[in-house]
Amino acid sequence: MKRNRENIPFTPGIEGVPRVRIALFCLAVPLLLFLSLLLGASGQGFPDVHSPVGKAILNLRINRLVMGLLVGSALSVSGVVFQAILRNPLAEPYVLGVSGGAGLGATLAILFGAVAFIPLSLPVAAFVAAVLTLFLVYGIASRGSGGSPSVYSLILSGVIISSICSSLIMFLVSTASADGLHSVIWWMLGNLQPAPLDQRILSTVLIGAGFIVTWLLGSRFNALTLGREMAHYQGMNADLIILGGLLAATLMAATAVSIGGMIGFVGLIVPHVTRAMFGPDHRWLIPLSAVSGGTFLVLCDAVARTVLAPVEMPVGVITALAGGPFFLMILQRKMKNAWIA
């Protein structure tokens, strides 16, 4: 089967990216997002915008939609980046201890009451703790390797630091007063209740910055999947790109954790599914994963607030319940289009 050479469009990487699927995807996303506005704890259907109550409900739903888009895209893109840099299908913010570190920072901020007094202390604490964790993991992994750590030592030390962080969170939770306990637990389970406005604005800026950096590095990530050595030969400063990519991905994951709590599975599943649909070229994969990750989380949230209405479930429960079996199913199909390992 040979292609007609005359028709090669001179767009970067459109080769191998199925255009029909992209078109369908572009149609489906707004439709799904609109659908999610119809679902809520107060009942199905579009709220009556003429009544004040309806207005408030619509406003709330839109806010949650924005939250979902932000958190979902941040987690997905950081998953894409970690998987590319570490060349490992299991890499995601959780594996590297980044989410755990962010969670620990956020827990400290909540329990010590900083959140109530200092504006924006939650995202800042989460990011600082996540970066410290990343450096700690990187530092431990580099020991004795004379500079740049191997992927295996990175993942190993990441898993260890991650479990230390969660033990520390457990310790803090078990000694916390009943008052702080509720907010920590609720936050830990993951939810998309709109955060304060200043926090939302800051998070949008941070996640946007992380997205732009990672998208700019898209072609470098393509080369990095061939290994650090090959990327170096291809004329890039591999160590700088690895560090920059890890920092940008950490920034996005930490920000997402600080406003959405610990929402698992999104950073693992969405990159795989998106790659299976559109191929692994990161110049496309990064923006597409951002959109699909955001949409996925918005839909999960819509389900979370409707299934047991008027009681709301934490969205993390839905992502795990929906994501787990889905992931297994894809693994069963050997992920031919997405990952050969």
């Binding site: 990487g13 080769e15 191998g16 590319a84 060349r87 490992n88 299908p89 393509n222 999947t225 061939l226 790659r275 191929g279 692994p280 070229d281 031919k336 289009n337 997405a338 990952w339 050969i340 390992a341």
Partner: peptide
């Protein structure tokens, strides 16, 4: 390459 890149890519 751990990912399913085509030869052209």
């Amino acid at each position: 390459s751990p990912m399913a890149f085509t030869v052209h890519q």
